[in-house]
Design a protein around this nucleic acid. Sequence first.
DNA 1: GGCACCTATCAGCCAGTGTTGACAGGCAAG
DNA 2: CTTGCCTGTCAACACTGGCTGATAGGTGCC
Lengths: 163, 163
Amino acid sequence: MTGHEGSSVPPGRPLLRKLDQRLNDLIAALYPDERKRPGYAKLAAEIRQTTGGAISGTYLWELATGKKRNVTLEQLDVLAEFFGVPPEYFLNEEVADRVNAQLKLATALRDARVRNLALRADGLSTESLDALLAMVSEARKLQQLSPVVDENVVDAKPGNDER
Amino acid sequence: MTGHEGSSVPPGRPLLRKLDQRLNDLIAALYPDERKRPGYAKLAAEIRQTTGGAISGTYLWELATGKKRNVTLEQLDVLAEFFGVPPEYFLNEEVADRVNAQLKLATALRDARVRNLALRADGLSTESLDALLAMVSEARKLQQLSPVVDENVVDAKPGNDER
DNA sequence: GGCACCTATCAGCCAGTGTTGACAGGCAAG
DNA sequence: CTTGCCTGTCAACACTGGCTGATAGGTGCC
């Protein structure tokens, strides 16, 4: 656009340079255990089926490593929706801090489902939360997800509780 | 997924569909008098010299008429900076409403300078406001702009375009 | 040893964002 | 009426956002 350099970020414009850090924070919050964390490809696939929006693993990596950062609003919306944060999270410092506190709290919880719900709960009404949960459940049933994902995200321990 | 119809937006994704309206609101707020309002080209030039970011008049029109709406963060930042609103204005309904109230109030004022300052004042500390004002004044002096605005915002010498 | 399946990273491609340039219509000055 | 400026609008172009595919390295299972 401006023909500005694209590698080193000139401090001239207060652009969204912290997007990479924000993204990494979110990922770390959702998957506190490094071993259990899926790669960017798997994570992107998860985002795709959860939000319906398209995103590639490679691009996720590019964003997380700061190689690309001038995303479009559509992508921003998809990311925000998946991680359960308001889109302003990527723009406003205060909002980011507030949400980050919530994230730390959620990380403390052991149960993956509760953690996930807690993340998505921020700023939503009870009705919205309920509707979301129902939709996700429906989607899973519809896709006939096998008893995989033993300790991954959405499903918890294998052959155990589960409503 | 770019089935851009212009008017009817596929409700599949709660995208930023109101960007055109928001933009028009801002323009109308800044230039309440239709007669005195500069065209998109002039307005774009104004934005360019004020914020330093690049934007074309045609593109401004496309955004205002809803032909394009999936802007990048960089463009969003430039627009927000010029109009003196926080970037969340384009994302968050509540913020937009709150700021819109401020805009109406500011519109009531006759003096263009006060109106301008009022717009930019929202959410800023007194120090920031002061610094901004100083910078703008310096810029004006530097560009040898005519002795301040009469009722327009900035007066440009006819037939002269820099850069 | 080997193979199969991961992962992160890179190079190249396509689509759409954002550009420049030009056209038609309105309004004031000559 | 003609000339000139300014407006909104469009079409053709360029650049980069975002994707697909391939490569290199790691770990487990045979």
